[in-house]
């Protein structure tokens, strides 16, 4: 014990140990402060299916235009009406969309509620519209657009 008291070399090592200790404590306090900020606000942005819903509506708008062109083409090569062709194409599209989103645990239903493509065949310059009911649900968020009115031109 006497040796321990008299031997005072290595003091800088002990001092640096203290300094490190205190700086670590300060860092721990800082980390604890950040633990309680910004969880809910960032989580809400991540969880809310804004992009999914946007994708569904914009994809449906785009696809409706393509389907119009296709239905018109099919009408010229077969004797089925434009409306009938359109319904067939839309059914396929609806099934594919439902399947794609079901893979992520989301429910999408698309429903062709009305369409006005009559002027398409006669080439009169009327506005052709498709009315689609879109619903989306992921358990937390429910979206329905009834109807989404989509303007299509040949």
């Amino acid at each position: 014990m006497a040796g321990l008291k008299d031997n005072n070399s290595g003091q800088l090592i002990i001092l640096s140990g203290f300094v490190l200790c205190f700086s670590l404590v300060a860092l721990i306090l800082l980390v604890n402060q950040t633990m309680i900020t910004g969880y809910h606000s960032s989580n809400a942005v991540l969880e809310f299916p804004k992009h999914q819903i946007r994708d569904i509506t914009s994809q449906t708008r785009e696809s409706c235009v393509y389907m119009t062109e296709l239905a018109l083409d099919l009408n010229q090569s077969s004797n089925l009406s434009i409306d009938h062709n359109y319904r067939l194409l839309f059914d396929q599209y609806e099934q594919q969309m439902a399947m794609l989103y079901a893979g992520h645990g989301e429910q999408v239903t698309l429903d062709l509620s009305a369409m006005n493509l009559t002027s398409m065949a006669t080439n009169t310059p009327n506005i052709n519209t498709i009315w689609v009911n879109i619903t989306y649900s992921n358990g937390m968020t429910y979206y329905s657009s009834e109807p989404e009115i989509i303007e299509v031109r040949p």
């Binding site: 809310f48 819903i53 429910y142």
Partner: peptide, 16 residues
């Protein structure tokens, strides 16, 4: 976020 995607005719509901 809801405001950005509001449907013209329709409903949107979100639980949090």
């Amino acid at each position: 976020d809801m405001y950005l995607i509001l449907p013209e005719n329709g409903v949107i509901e979100s639980d949090y």
